[in-house]
Amino acid sequence: MTPEDSFSDFYQRERTRLLRFAAVVSPHLDHESAVQEAFVGAWRHWPTIDETRRRAWMVKTIRNLLVDQSRRRERPGEVTDEVAARHRGTFRILVQRDRDPETWQELNSTFAAIADLPDRLRTALVLRFWDFGDDEIADVLGCRRETVRRYVTEARARISEVVGNQERRARRSRRGEGRS
């Protein structure tokens, strides 16, 4: 397979996942341009990027580009029309359109809770959701794989505290009942 074919396959397979990752970790920034700029960088360095670490390389690059964006512009402290419009665009990327209002409310609460997480917890959780392995996430965050597991657990607990779907908690607590 030529390097061009390899890059094209990678782009087709990972583009949507990386867009969604960027949208969740920084919904207030221009995540689409960050992803595209990362792919341009990957194309330039494609032969030198270790094949087993390409997704991690992309995520690190996207995170750095988003950090650069956030340094160039001030993050709004309150929800303005511009921020709300960007969030609606982000949610369209992330979820299907035909959801009932109750589900949309839960999704909005969940996305807000994710956005409020510290960067390391948010990144670990989102990458885990997109099926990144512990080693890949550890590579992105520059930590050990045991730390990744702790970050994901802590992120889930914090989101559960904020969003807390009581019905799901009740079902989970009854899983062990009736077994001997």
Rank of each mutant, 00 (worst) to 15 (best):
Q105D: 12
V67E: 10
I114D: 05
H87I: 14
F91H: 08
P101K: 00
D81F: 02
R88E: 15
V67F: 10
F111L: 13
E106A: 05
T103P: 01
L94A: 04
S70I: 05
R99F: 04
F111I: 11
P76K: 08
V95K: 01
A113I: 07
A112M: 05
N108D: 12
D119Q: 12
G89C: 13
E106C: 06
E78A: 10
D119L: 13
D100W: 00
E78C: 05
R120S: 15
G89D: 14
H87G: 10
E102M: 09
R73W: 02
R97M: 02
L107C: 07
L94Q: 07
E106Y: 03
W104A: 01
A112T: 12
Q69G: 09
F111R: 07
R73L: 05
R73N: 01
N108L: 15
V67Q: 11
V83E: 04
L125H: 10
P101Y: 00
R73H: 02
R73D: 00
R97N: 04
A112I: 07
F111Q: 08
A85P: 08
V126Y: 04
V67D: 11
T80R: 11
Q105K: 05
R73F: 02
F91E: 12
N108K: 10
F91L: 13
I93E: 11
Q105R: 08
L127C: 05
D116K: 11
Q105M: 11
H87M: 14
E74W: 06
R122G: 09
R72P: 00
T80W: 11
I114C: 15
